[in-house]
Structures are given as structure tokens and as C-alpha cells.
Amino acid sequence: TLEVQPGESGMIDIRVADTGCGISEKNLNRIFDPFFTTKGALGGGKQAGTGLGLSVCYNIIQSRGGRINVESSPSEGTTFAVTLPSGEMATAVCEGEVGAGGAETDVGSRDQRILVVDDEEQIRDMLRDFLGAQNVTCCCSGEEALEACESQLFDFVLLDICMKNSSSGIEIFRALRQCDPALKIILCTGNLPENIPPEVLESCHAHLLKPFKLDDLCATLNSTVEA
């Protein structure tokens, strides 16, 4: 069922409820985390899932000055409650007169140029939206990343070293490092540290193990800028 009604202080309340299988308590606190899924190989279900749908929704709603909450019980269904600004309040948020809330990377304000290298389109889109599209370039392969680095300068690279239809991620890392020794490369990958060559771990600026939280990425970027 879908319910929409006026909220308080120029907001609008939206409730979406179902009578499905519900969400277990242990999963309820993680459903907005990037890459967390109960579907497919990652979650043990039959259908494939990337674990990005609700995370993208959460960040879009936060960026628009809203909030989203969820209530669920196994075998009883799930209810999502979304609150968004409407009318003049929505206009004020879009024009920056009212703070939108949510995580602040503080990186875009310092004119940092960021290259995102990942073969998953949803991940690229999510990171672009989170980081601010103005200073972000996205590539779907290591070869594209090398071409981008040859044509312009970047301050950061967020690199997945385990990509399909691409050269070895480790070789791409080494080529990027050779192209620009000062480049700050952050590994965003599902590879455990023990599966990454020691010299790569030592020369990268950080290693974020998927699934990671956007707050962790934010903290990593800001600490790297300040280093």
C-alpha cells in the first residue's frame, strides 16, 4: 500500500507497506549499507542483487533534505516511511538555502579531482552522486582509467582491482602509480588484504574492503587530504 499526506513544517510524508516475508532484526540495521544484500551469491538467495538499491535511495533522500525509516517483522511485512521537503522548503533545499543533511565528504569543496574506476555501473553512479559529480570522473575499466590519467590530472583514484573484462587490477594499479607517482590511490575492493601483493598495500593510500559504508569512505578521503 502507498500513503501520501502532508507532514510538519513544509514536509510531506510517504509510507510504503507490503505484507511480504519481512526483514529479520539482524538485517534491519544493515539494509541501507552499500553492497549489503540478502539476494544471490552475496546473500544466499536465488535472485541476483548488488546491494545498492536501498543505499542509493537513502543517499538521494538525504541529499534532498529528507529521511527514511523502516519497520519490519519476519512474516508480517515491511513499511518504509519517507519524509521529504515540499513546496518552498524543497526549493530552498535545492538552492542551498536550507541544509540537506547527510554525510559531508568535504572533498569537493577543496577542488579535489577524483577518478572512480569500477565495472559496476550502479557503484559508479552511487559514488558520483555521493562525491559530487562536478569533480568526479568515472571509468568502467582499467584501460579507460589509464587514458583518463594521461589526459588530465587527478588527486584521488578509487580503484576496484577485481573487475571483469579488464586487465589485472594489480597491473592497472602499478601503471597508474607509474603514470603519476604522487597520485593518491584508494583500493575499494572485495579482495582481502592477504590476497593483495604487499608492495601494493604499502604504496596505496588506503584499502576499503567491500562492502564498506559511505561514512567510512568519507572519513578515508578526508584523512588522506589532511595527511
Rank of each mutant, 00 (worst) to 15 (best):
F36Y: 10
L176V: 06
N69K: 14
G66P: 06
I114E: 11
T137D: 02
A175S: 05
E202W: 15
N27K: 07
I14R: 10
E144Y: 13
L214D: 02
L52D: 00
V200I: 14
P181Y: 11
I60R: 05
G49T: 10
S73N: 15
S55V: 08
A81C: 12
A103G: 09
E147R: 12
M11L: 12
R64T: 00
P211G: 10
G22K: 01
K164T: 06
T38G: 03
L159A: 07
S63M: 09
S109G: 13
S86W: 15
A219T: 15
S109V: 15
G7T: 08
P85Q: 05
E76N: 09
A48F: 09
A81L: 08
L131S: 01
V56G: 04
S24Y: 07
N195A: 11
C94I: 15
I23R: 02
V93F: 00
C218H: 08
C188D: 00
M163F: 14
Q112G: 01
D118G: 04
L158G: 01
L153E: 08
I23W: 00
R30C: 12
K164L: 09
P197M: 02
V225D: 03
I31L: 10
G20K: 10
S73M: 15
E25W: 08
C140E: 13
R124E: 00
G169F: 01
L192S: 05
L159C: 06
S86M: 14
I161L: 06
G40M: 06
E143Q: 11
Q62W: 05
G99P: 01
T50Q: 01
K26W: 07
L221F: 10
A148P: 00
L221M: 14
L52T: 04
S72Q: 01
A48E: 11
S168D: 15
H205D: 08
G190F: 13
T37E: 08
L28D: 12
G87L: 01
A133G: 11
T91D: 02
V107Y: 06
I114R: 00
I172E: 00
L221Q: 03
G190C: 04
L131P: 00
E144I: 07
E171I: 05
A219S: 12
L28F: 09
T78W: 11
I161C: 08
C149V: 15
V56Q: 09
I123V: 09
P193E: 05
G102Y: 03
S9W: 15
P34F: 09
K26G: 14
L42N: 13
Y58A: 08
G190D: 10
P198L: 13
E171V: 07
L201P: 03
K26M: 13
I68E: 11
E226W: 07
E71S: 08
Y58C: 10
D125A: 14
V225S: 00
